[in-house]
C-alpha cells in the first residue's frame, strides 16, 4: 500500500524542483562568499573602489539566487547556505548605503588655526595640545579598533 497518495508524476516534479532549489541555495552561497572574500581583500589593501556597483550587483545576485532557492523549495541542506547568502547578500549592500558620512560646514579647514584640546592618552594621562607648539604635527582621526 502506498503511503503517499499523490500521483507518481507529481512526486517526480517535486523532487526535480527540490534539486534545483538546493543547487540554487549552494550557488547563492558561492557567489556571496566569493564576493565577500574579494571585498575583505580590497579592504585590507585600502583599495575599496569608489564605484562599488559591481560588488553591490554580485551581493544582490546572491540574494536573488538564495530567495529563488526557497521559491523552488530547496531541501534542508540547501536552506542553510541559502540563508547565509541572504544575510551576506543583504548586509553588504545595506552597509554601502549607510557608509556615506558628512561633517558640519564648520569643520576644520586649511588655513585655520588648530583648536586647543586636551584628551587622555593611552596611559590615562592628560595630553595638552599646547605641547605641540612649535612642532609640525600629523593628526589622524579614525573610527577606533572595533
Amino acid at each position: 500500500m502506498s503511503v503517499d497518495s499523490r500521483p507518481v508524476g507529481e512526486n517526480l516534479v517535486n523532487t526535480q524542483s527540490n534539486k534545483l532549489g538546493t543547487r540554487l541555495g549552494f550557488a547563492a552561497f558561492g557567489v556571496a562568499a566569493l564576493t565577500m572574500v574579494a571585498w575583505f581583500r580590497q579592504i585590507n589593501q585600502v583599495d575599496i573602489p569608489e564605484n562599488r556597483i559591481v560588488f553591490a550587483a554580485l551581493f544582490l545576485t546572491a540574494l536573488v539566487l538564495a530567495i529563488s532557492a526557497f521559491v523552488k523549495r530547496t531541501r534542508w541542506f540547501g536552506a542553510i547556505p541559502a540563508l547565509l547568502a541572504i544575510v551576506i547578500g543583504g548586509f553588504f549592500p545595506f552597509s554601502m548605503t549607510i557608509s556615506r558620512q558628512e561633517v558640519a560646514t564648520t569643520g576644520i579647514q586649511v588655513g585655520q588655526t588648530m583648536p586647543e584640546f586636551k584628551a587622555l592618552n593611552r596611559k590615562g594621562e592628560w595630553f595638552d595640545s599646547a605641547s605641540l607648539d612649535g612642532k609640525p604635527t600629523l593628526i589622524k582621526f579614525f573610527r577606533g579598533h572595533w
Binding site: K135, P136, L138, I139, K140, F141, F142, R143
Partner: peptide
C-alpha cells in the same frame, strides 16, 4: 569622527 588626516605647521 569622520576619518581625517591633517598636517599642522609649527
Amino acid at each position: 569622527p569622520v576619518p581625517t588626516s591633517m598636517l599642522i605647521g609649527s
